[in-house]
Amino acid sequence: MGKKVTVVGAGFYGSTTAQRLAEYDVFETVVLTDIVAGKPEGLALDLNQSRPIEGFETKVVGATTGPNGEGYEAIEASDVVVITAGLPRKPGMSRMDLLGVNAKIVRQVAENVAKFAPAAVVIVVSNPLDEMTALAQIATGFPTNRVLGQAGMLDTARFSNFVAEALAVPVGDVRTLTLGSHGDTMVPVPSRCSVRGTPLAELLPAGQIDELVVRTRNGGAEVVALLKTGSAYYAPSAAAARMAKAVAEDSGAVMPVCAWVDGEYGISGVYLGVEAEIGAEGVKRVIETELTPSERADLLNAAEAVRAKQADITNL
């Protein structure tokens, strides 16, 4: 124990992430912060009162933060900081539509994280994901391995769920993978997908696999269109919490995440969705996985699309 994790932003995503992290019972403290006065403190009180029922000892602390860094002392000595702050999408919005407004928020949060939790591993979940991860690294000045983004875990989970439903099999029997960006240049990897070891291509016709790939790529927008008042948070928070747990436990778990790529796949100098080994220092190493020529080409295209957008964020 003795580990401390902070979740910045107490909206649906942040509060659900804090709940999952507390219920793991692997942290001594979960800190939840927000700019809405009293909201994180109220949620923390509520979560702490669930401890006798759910049987976990992790203490949840709420802290209201101000525009000039007020309240951020609560995050001191955090081992992991999950940044969920920012506006969610509304129906008809792309993730990129959030770039300007969320960049200001993420930059301010990242600067305070660097000041108050200089040894933390930072997990970014604010959209547009790949760009906000790059911005958080620039704003904190942290080594690239200590700043990573949550996307691939979520996109892969969506893909697996859709495959399980299409074949009426348990989700635990399905293995899928998505790489690339968290958006239009997402690269689901059908060659790495299987059900109980049988390649997906032997179980579903190519056209149906393509349909599932498209549905995965649009997975967030599908939820947004149905909710009308916000975006997904149950699956995204599960993904972010699992990443934070892997850091806290120094587990070496291999997960698809948004990580700094420096030579792998012949791609350098960009944050991109890849498989990586996760531990106490964040990304231990990027895993270069076998891809078909067309999947590799798609990943290179994704890298260049993300690189173009990440070049813009230094001015935001």
Rank of each mutant, 00 (worst) to 15 (best):
S126I: 04
L212V: 14
K4E: 09
G149C: 10
S294A: 14
I75P: 11
D25F: 04
A120F: 06
F159H: 07
Q49T: 11
A85W: 00
S181N: 03
L135T: 09
A74S: 15
E54M: 10
G219A: 02
A10W: 09
A241K: 13
I138Y: 04
T198L: 01
R51I: 05
A22M: 12
M132V: 10
A221E: 13
A18P: 04
R146Q: 01
T140K: 01
A302M: 03
A259K: 00
S251L: 10
P170M: 01
A253I: 09
T185E: 12
G100D: 15
D97G: 12
I83D: 08
N112K: 02
T16D: 13
Q310R: 05
K115Y: 10
V274Y: 10
G197C: 07
D262N: 09
P205R: 05
N315F: 14
A280T: 02
G69I: 03
A117Q: 02
V171S: 13
V31D: 08
G11R: 10
G11C: 05
E249N: 13
A18E: 08
A240F: 07
G92A: 09
R196Y: 02
L227Q: 15
R95M: 10
L204R: 12
R196W: 11
V187Y: 07
L204E: 12
G149I: 03
K59V: 15
T17C: 12
A259E: 14
E249H: 04
D262E: 11
V81R: 10
R196N: 12
A74W: 08
E275D: 08
V30A: 12
A244F: 14
G55N: 08
Q108W: 10
E76D: 15
I105M: 05
G86Y: 06
A166V: 00
V26N: 04
L167E: 08
P118I: 09
G92V: 02
E165L: 13
E304I: 06
A280Q: 03
A238P: 02
T33G: 14
D155C: 06
V163L: 06
